[in-house]
Design a protein around this nucleic acid. Structure first.
Lengths: 223, 223
DNA sequence: AACCTACAGTAACATTTATCACAGAAGATT
DNA sequence: AATCTTCTGTGATAAATGTTACTGTAGGTT
């Protein structure tokens, strides 16, 4: 990242604080400075598994840039998509498990190159008492992730596969901010825990209804 | 509840503190005294709906005695069972929503006469900073309820109805501490979001496999 | 061009779950 | 006892989903 003369480093640091403030607008300035000081910034390429089921968790993960998908793994190797994590969010599981250094119940995969801030577990807990804005962020993270999982329960408990597929596509396009889903039918099937043929059939029906246009490795959402 | 001469009231108070200490062994003595002072003890009969979907939440609920079932409601009126709350536990949703005074995402029904301690929302938040043992209890509540919901996702995402039914019966008998399930097939079907006929058929198969004995309004678990 | 591989489409069939229809059994009520 | 209601069992059928097998096509590789 460029040369390392003092002015540049200072500038980078300044920019970092500015960007943290932008991504986490509710964090106090002291908290941001503390995060700067104690957290470690790391990059991961798309495809990286950030956390595996059964692994012990040593850090709380704040998303600065990029996207992560959170999966629940089945015994047979299924990878059921639960939700996305985006900049400004944090992994609730990593917070919850961190507090007791428990095993992860989920799998986290990078789907768009990410920059994350890793916070060591002792600090995560310590800051709860010291920084009101951290406390509120953690509680809000619990709340919103819990709600998201409840929505997942809704989908699989009350809805049929065609509705779940529509929801899946909509959420994908919301997450990437575009109307093209660049995934193969097989990938979608895996994340919905169904088979490729079922996804192909349902997509074809959606195309006939005028909801999508199907291309190779791409689904365009029309409505 | 008996007469109201001073000695009796003192004794009751003493007993209450003792029993709180037994049910919530990790609470500090100061915390228990604070709860005594600020919380309000209430009884509800089996069948009472303690909390409805969409309702605003004004209290955090600690279970002292009895049992509560937590449901996710479908748009069509389905009542999908998520988990049980038992003495020593608290409603995670009431904590999470309380913090922001949000709407409830779930429905809570008393299934065995309960005594609960209602904690006003401002205190729930305030105590987080003042009582370490309260803080730890709240975090542990989030963690264990989150895990429980993840297990629900597992069940509906990866398992078929016969496995889910077995799981349902096992959990029921764990909760009531006996091997008889005193529910009609219709009630079970509703909580699994399936139909009565399916439950009847699957139970019959389980009986043929020697897993249960079927009586009217009762299922005995044999293994 | 010839070949290879991953992806997509689809028919046929199996399995699971849902729905409809009806009958009988257990309890409750009169 | 006669009646009524609720619960349970079960066959027939429908609908949704899963599986197998095969085909074609797009794009990359040789």
């Amino acid at each position: 990242m460029g040369n390392s003369t003092w002015p540049d480093v200072t500038k980078l640091l300044y920019n970092m604080q500015q960007s943290l403030k932008t991504i986490f607008p509710n964090f106090s300035n002291e908290l941001i400075a503390t995060i700067e000081e104690n957290g470690s910034l790391q990059d991961f390429k798309a495809g990286t598994i950030l956390m595996r089921t059964g692994q012990y968790i040593k850090n709380t993960v704040l998303i600065i840039k990029g996207k992560i998908k959170i999966y629940r793994e089945g015994e047979d190797g299924g990878e059921f998509l639960m939700y996305y994590l985006q900049p400004g969010q944090a992994c609730a599981i990593s917070m919850i498990c961190t507090a007791k250094s428990e095993k992860s119940q989920i799998m986290a995969k990078v789907v768009e190159d990410v920059t994350v801030m890793m916070i060591p577990l002792q600090l995560m807990d310590k800051w709860m008492m010291e920084h009101r804005s951290w406390y509120e962020f953690v509680i809000e993270t619990y709340r919103s992730r819990f709600e998201e999982v409840l929505e997942v329960v809704d989908n699989i408990a009350f809805r049929s596969m065609d509705e779940r597929l529509e929801f899946y596509l909509k959420r994908h396009s919301d997450a990437c901010g575009c109307s093209e889903v660049n995934l193969s039918h097989q990938e979608i099937a895996t994340e919905l825990n169904t088979s490729r043929e079922v996804v192909s059939r349902l997509l074809k029906k959606m195309e006939q209804r005028g909801l999508v246009k199907l291309n190779r490795n791409q689904i365009e959402l029309l409505k």
